[in-house]
């Protein structure tokens, strides 16, 4: 069904929220609160990390692990509850946070869809409507083909694509113009393939890998981790990943990067935390410090290993700049991909 639903509000959130007086009063008495005096701000109620997706996905895992880390490492005094706000590829969660303007106790996890979905006109809120706090990790895209496919590296594939793009079907989870599509187009374009000629099919019902294996699709554009099990089983091979350098880890260290194949382009699936609009400098500084501490902790190191994430910390200012650049390059790509007729 469309709205796969999962509002898993962790039990203790509701209790903690309730303990705080459960409602509007305490939520609105926020911002100025402790910011008086020496310019130090501290949260005065329990925090809420919003994953704008269902339980179990990348955003959700990041939010939950961060919450667990803050608690385990005693970095923050306040309790943290993780809340799932699913829908619209994130749009539902974003509009929820936008409605929490000036209440810095609600943060959310985001990644490139925060840029792409608004650019595709599917959300009225974009990254500029929120306060970037810190980027925590990065992930990369992978392009996989069947083990018996005629291509052995990305250049083989792109050469064939230049000649007859209509013969090669690229499949991905997200809709056209969103992440799986754009990461492929970005690399292919650098290799000289016309972005518009890429034949991309979106399969949002979990049938992407099936369609690669049964030959309905030729190339699968996805995240690195999604490919690992099938590579180990010898069913598929990964022609290239979008990282700058080789990844570390058991299977993934064998995946060649696009860069080392002479295609000078990367795609970062960054993931970090954002706050509602209108946060003060003191509030940003507070969170930056806390997230930096988490990032440097052993706990986070283990977490990165466990989920095969890579380290990519950015503070609020760097993050904002990075996002501007990213958005610009996405916009360019989208303009080339989505050509309206007439």
């Amino acid at each position: 069904m469309k709205k796969i639903w999962l509002p898993t509000l962790a039990l203790f959130t509701s209790i903690t929220l309730a303990a705080c007086g459960g409602g509007e009063d305490s939520e609105n008495s926020n911002a100025e609160g402790n910011s008086s005096g020496d310019g130090n701000w501290e949260p005065e109620q329990s925090l809420e990390f919003v994953a704008p997706s269902g339980a179990g996905g990348g955003w959700d895992t990041t939010a939950r692990m961060a919450a667990e880390g803050f608690e385990e490492q005693d970095i923050m005094d306040q309790g943290i509850g993780v809340v799932n706000k699913e829908g619209g590829g994130g749009a539902v969660g974003w509009s929820y946070i936008a409605g929490k303007a000036e209440n810095p106790h609600h943060l959310f996890v985001a990644s490139p869809p925060l840029l792409l979905i608004p650019l595709n006109g599917q959300s009225e809120y974009g990254h500029e409507d929120f306060t970037p706090i810190a980027n925590m990790i990065s992930d990369y895209g992978a392009f996989a083909v069947r083990e018996d496919a005629p291509w052995d590296d990305l250049n083989d594939l792109f050469e064939d694509m230049k000649d007859s793009p209509e013969d090669i079907t690229v499949i991905g989870e997200s809709s056209p113009g969103s992440m799986d599509h754009i990461q492929f187009v970005k690399i292919a374009k650098e290799a000289g393939v016309d972005p518009q000629s890429v034949k991309y099919v979106s399969a949002q019902d979990g049938s992407t890998m099936t369609n690669l294996l049964n030959g309905n699709a030729d190339v699968y554009s996805t995240g690195v981790t999604e490919t690992v099990e099938q590579v180990r089983a010898g069913e598929i091979k990964v022609l290239g990943v979008t990282a700058e350098e080789r990844l570390e880890g058991d299977v993934v260290e064998d995946f060649p990067t696009a860069t080392e194949q002479g295609i000078d382009e990367t795609f970062v699936n960054w993931r970090g935390f954002f706050g509602p609009p209108g946060m003060t400098d003191e509030q940003i500084t507070y969170y930056e410090e806390k997230f930096k501490e988490l990032n440097d902790s052993e706990f986070w190191d283990e977490t990165r290993d466990k989920y095969a994430w890579n380290e990519l910390y950015m503070d609020s200012e760097e993050y904002a700049e990075f996002l501007e650049d990213e958005k610009e390059s996405m916009q360019e790509l989208l303009d080339e991909v989505n050509v309206e007729e007439e």
């Binding site: 339980a55 179990g56 996905g57 959700d60 019902d205 979990g206 099990e229 099938q230």
Partner: peptide, 27 residues
């Protein structure tokens, strides 16, 4: 047997398994 979710429900189940560090796949 393949690590492929066949439906919305099994996709959520797969997500839950990943959180538990089980990576279903052909092996």
């Amino acid at each position: 047997s393949l690590g492929i979710p066949g439906s919305g429900t099994t996709a959520v189940l797969l997500g839950a398994l990943l959180v538990l560090d089980i990576q279903p796949g052909p092996l």
